[in-house]
């Protein structure tokens, strides 16, 4: 049944002061959606390119990597693939961390205000730190 537009909607996001728990909650959805569209397409494209053979795989790698002398590249990747992969890697670590947080919350633990606030902030900072660490590792090679 369609919503009766004469009735008010519950005011939610607009009226609350933002806190870490709200932020990590919506980031879980946002990062999950990024992984669903970006991560899954990249994974399937990569697998299909390998399966199609060396020529197709070479084209795939050519799309992702910069030519010699191209200033717009980071660690051999073109700038757009770098931004896409960097975003996917952040979404991965964020979703991993907030997913682990959800599994703990599912057991009924971690709802005390201080504990909940601490892990909400820790998960967000951990996601950023792990992303930077991964790319430092890749770019250092």
């Amino acid at each position: 049944m369609a919503r009766n537009s004469n009735r008010p909607l519950s005011p939610h996001l607009q009226i609350w002061r933002w806190g870490p728990a709200m932020a990590v909650s919506i980031l879980h959805r946002a990062s999950g959606s990024i992984l669903s569209f970006g991560g899954s397409v990249m994974l399937v494209a990569w697998l299909a390119a390998i399966a199609a053979g060396p020529d197709t795989y070479a084209k795939f790698i050519d799309c992702m990597t910069a030519d010699e002398g191209n200033a717009l590249h980071i660690g051999g990747l073109n700038i757009i693939p770098f931004i896409v992969l960097f975003g996917i890697s952040w979404a991965f670590f964020q979703h991993l961390g907030s997913g682990l947080r959800h599994l703990v919350l599912d057991t009924g633990a971690g709802y005390e205000l201080k504990t909940n606030r601490f892990w909400s902030i820790a998960v967000m900072l951990g996601g950023i730190a792990a992303t930077i660490a991964l790319w430092a590792l890749i770019l250092a090679r």
């Binding site: 697998l47 299909a48 399966a51």
Partner: peptide, 20 residues
């Protein structure tokens, strides 16, 4: 569609490996 494409790709790589 995406999962089927991925599964077939992995199976093909598993069977013929790098001999494509």
């Amino acid at each position: 569609i995406a999962a089927a494409l991925a599964v077939v790709s992995v199976l093909k790589i598993a069977v013929i490996g790098g001999a494509a």
